[in-house]
């Protein structure tokens, strides 16, 4: 089921085109990666979802009907540029932000207690925000984003400022929220976490969407039919048959563990390659090389420029 979608959304600021006919569709209960270089238009799209700004043309749907202002309470947004009132106390501030999202004071208090205990930060309740470190502030901010149990969560660079331990804590929380049915739009430049978390991605560059699809399928689409093989034995790859079918990218022979990095130019499948190899050598490992999201990102964006 589709929770959120944008159809043909365009937005122009003064002289700059921020979004050009962008459409995305976010399935309920999935993590949707919104990728793109700096200044591509991601933040504009996120602001449109949050109704901070309105599109010049195109339409935006939530639960299959046009997005309306009361949907704000169903959305939680952790912006990339984020902060808190420095002189306000942590607890008071979290209560305030929860109430702004439509929670009653009582409910906000109950939820906050639960989260503060979970993150082991109850001692911070009466501290002023300025007394906390950057990472601590980010934790508080994360809680404020998810406090009102929104159905759609938007995280823009949620891991910035976190040490690896806390980044892992947040990752687990995001996965838990997903398992409980939340839908997440995730924007980041950290492609490893995209591979780890995102079910589906869309890549925006120069105000246009240039790539869209399930993460695994996209990586699949960008594979170049190359394989990593390690083997034992002597391999003859000089003969004309082999050369016509395969392109040797690298070949290491050092007696016990030989390695071959090869591209199948013929039909791209692993079957024929294995057949051609097993006649000559004993295969220890055989892996198809699937490009990382990082490689996909760089390739696509470079092509587009």
């Amino acid at each position: 089921m589709e929770l959120f979608s944008a159809n043909d959304v365009s937005k122009t600021y003064a002289s700059q085109q921020a979004l050009t006919n962008v459409s995305i569709s976010v399935e309920q209960g999935t993590i949707f990666g919104l990728l793109g270089p700096n200044g591509a238009g991601k933040t504009t799209l996120i602001r449109i979802i949050n109704q901070i700004t309105a599109p010049d043309s195109g339409s935006v749907y939530f639960e299959g009907r046009p997005l309306k202002s009361s949907d704000i309470s169903q959305i939680g947004y952790l912006p990339e540029e984020r902060g808190l009132y420095k002189k306000m106390k942590v607890g008071e501030q979290a209560l305030y932000l929860g109430q702004l999202k439509g929670l009653s004071r009582h409910d906000a208090m109950k939820e906050l207690k639960m989260w503060f205990e979970k993150f082991e930060i109850t001692a911070w309740w009466d501290k002023k925000v300025m007394e906390l470190s950057k990472g601590m502030q980010q934790k508080v901010q994360f809680i404020c984003t998810v406090l009102h149990k929104p159905r759609l969560l938007i995280f823009d660079e949620p891991f910035s400022g976190f040490d690896p331990i806390n980044a892992e804590l947040i990752t687990q929380e995001i996965l838990r929220l997903k398992s409980e049915g939340a839908t997440i739009i995730f924007s980041t430049h950290n492609m490893e976490s995209v591979e780890q978390l995102c079910d589906h991605i869309a890549l925006i560059d120069k105000s246009k969407k240039i790539l869209d699809g399930p993460t695994t399928q996209i990586r699949e689409n960008f594979k170049t039919n190359t394989f990593d093989i390690s083997y034992r034995g002597a391999l003859n790859i000089e003969d004309s048959y082999f050369v016509s079918k395969y392109k040797i990218l690298s070949h290491e022979q050092n007696g016990h563990g030989n390695k071959l990095h090869v591209q199948n130019l013929h039909d791209g499948t692993s079957q024929q390659l294995i057949k051609d190899l097993v006649n000559q050598v004993e295969i220890i490992s055989f892996n198809e090389v699937i490009p990382s999201m990082n490689e996909v990102f760089i390739k696509v964006v470079k092509q587009n420029s």
């Binding site: 949050n50 109704q51 901070i52 202002s69 704000i72 959305i75 947004y77 952790l78 912006p79 540029e81 984020r82 902060g83 808190l84 009132y85 420095k86 932000l97 702004l100 999202k101 901010q141 404020c144």
Partner: peptide
């Protein structure tokens, strides 16, 4: 200015209208 400088403003206007 405080809200703008501390960047809390984006959090708040995702909850309320400017």
């Amino acid at each position: 200015m405080e809200e703008k400088q501390s960047r809390i403003v984006e959090v708040i206007i995702s909850s309320v209208k400017p």
